[in-house]
Write a protein that binds this DNA or RNA. Sequence first.
RNA 1: GGCGCUGUAGCCAAGUGGUCUAAGGCGGAAGUCUGCAAAACUUCUAUUCGUCGGUUCGAAUCCGACCGGCGCCUCCA
Length: 469
Amino acid sequence: MIKIYNTLTKQKEELIPLNPPNIRMYMCGPTVYDYFHIGNARSFIMSDIVRRYLEYKGYNVTFVMNLTDVDDKIIKKSIEENKTSKEVAEFYINEFFKDIERLKIKRASFYPKATEFINDMIDMIKKLEQKGIAYNVDGNVFYDVTKFQDYGKLSGKNINELEAGSRVEINEEKKHPLDFALWKKAKEGEPFWESPWGKGRPGWHIECSAMSCKLLGESFDIHAGGHDLIFPHHENEIAQSEAANQKPFVKYWIHFGFLNINEEKMSKSLGNFFTAREILESYSAEAIRLFFAQAHYRGPVNFSEELIKAAEKGFEKIQNTYDRINDELKNENLPQVETDFNFNQWYEKFEQAMDDDFNTASAVATIFDFSREVNKIISEGNYNKNFLLKSKEYFDKTAEGVLGLLKSDISSNQPSLEDELIEILIKIRNEAKQNKNYTLSDKIRDELKKIGIILQDSKTGTTYKKTKK
RNA sequence: GGCGCUGUAGCCAAGUGGUCUAAGGCGGAAGUCUGCAAAACUUCUAUUCGUCGGUUCGAAUCCGACCGGCGCCUCCA
C-alpha cells in the first residue's frame, strides 16, 4: 500500500487510483524561454522517481508534462533576440529534451504544447463564461473567484483575507483583486489567436486545465509540481476545471520543495544561478539524482559544490559494487557456494521505504546496505552465479529502475579496440610486477590514470574502470 | 498581517509514542588485504535529537512557551 502526502488534505493518504491499474498523472512542465535550472531538475527528477515507482508497483501510468510555449517571458526573450516567439520556444524545447535525456528522466507519455490546444482552452473559457463565472472586459477575460465556493481549498487561503493583503496587484479591470486572466487581449506585435473575445492569447492557468482534461479526463489521479505553484497556479486550475466540469479535478496533489544555493534562494541577480547542463558538465546524472534522492522530496534542499561532490562519491560506491557484480559474471570459474541470501527481504525493505510517501532517502539507505552485504559476500567468496544474477536484478530493478542511480554495464560482450589495448597493457604490467619491476608497473598505472582509466588489483586479477563519460 | 514548513553527529540526512543507549551518505581515525596503491571489508566517530516546561509507565517523536532558520501570499520548479 502506497501512502502519499496530499497537499489538498495536508496529510498522508492511501493511494487508491480512480481506475486501477491505471494511474493518470500530470506534472507542470517548463516555460520554454531558457535552459532549465538545477531547481527545475529537482522537480523533474523527483516526479520521474514517483512515476517510475508507480510503474515498478505494476501500475499503468499515463504521465503528462506540459510545455508552456506562449507566455510573457517567451515574448520578452523573442524581442531581445529578435526572433519570433515560436522560434524561441522551439529552440528551448529542443534543448529541454537534451537535458531531460542526460538526466535520465523517462519520457512522458505526452508533452502537450500550449499552442496546440488553443481551441480546447477557448472551449473551456466559453463554458465558464456561459456559467457566469468568467467575464469579458474589452477583450480580456477574467475568472471571477467569488463565484467558486471552494476557492482557496488547496492553498488554505481565504479570499477575504487576501483582499486585505497589500501584495496583491491592483488592476482596475478586475472585479476582485484575485481574479485572474483566462484570455489576454493581444498587444501590438504579440502572438495571437482568433477567439470569441477578439485577438489574444490564453492566460497561463487555463492551459493546464484544458490540456489535462483533454489528455487525462475531467478527473484524474495525481497532479504534481513545484511548491511555489500551489498558489495561485494550482488553486486556479482547480477553480477552472471544477467550475467548468462540475467534477472533482484531481485526487492527489503533490508538491516538490525548493532548492537553495548555499542557503540562499537561487536567482540570476545573486549570481548563484545554475542550469542543469552546467552541473552536468562536472557531475554525473547519477550523482545529481542521488543528491536529490537522499532528501525527502517535500522539504527544501540546499545545493553546494561540497554536497554534490559527496553525492558523486556515494554514487561511485554503489556503482563499484554493481560493476563488480558484472565483472564477476564474466568470470568462468565462479565459486559454487550455496547461499540462503534472502532477496525478498531486501525488496520489502526498499518498498517499505518507497511506499511511505516516496521516502527515497530511506530507500537509498537500503541500497547502500544491500551494496555492503553483496561486497562482503563476494569478498568472502561465499556465492555462486545465481547469487550474482539475483543481485544484479535487484540493482536493476530498484537502484536503477526506480531511482536511476546506476550506469549500465557498458563493457558489453563486444570488447572495443580500446578495451583490448588496455588488456594488453595490463598484461605487460602484470609481467613487470612478477619481475618486481615496480617502476614500470606503477608507470603504466599512473599513465592510464591520467587518461581516466583506473586499474585495480585484486586476488582474481586486475580490473579497470573508466572515469570519463 | 495571513497560510505553511523547519531546527537530529564536523557536514548532508531518515526516523514522528516503546524494537532509538537514533538508519544511510560524505568527511575523519585505526585495522585487514596489497610490492605500493585503489577498491572492498571490519571497528570507532550523537547516552542524544534548538531551549525550557508539561502529558505519559514510557517522547527525538504529543502539548505549551520561548529562541533560531525558511518558503508562499507577485512571474517562478
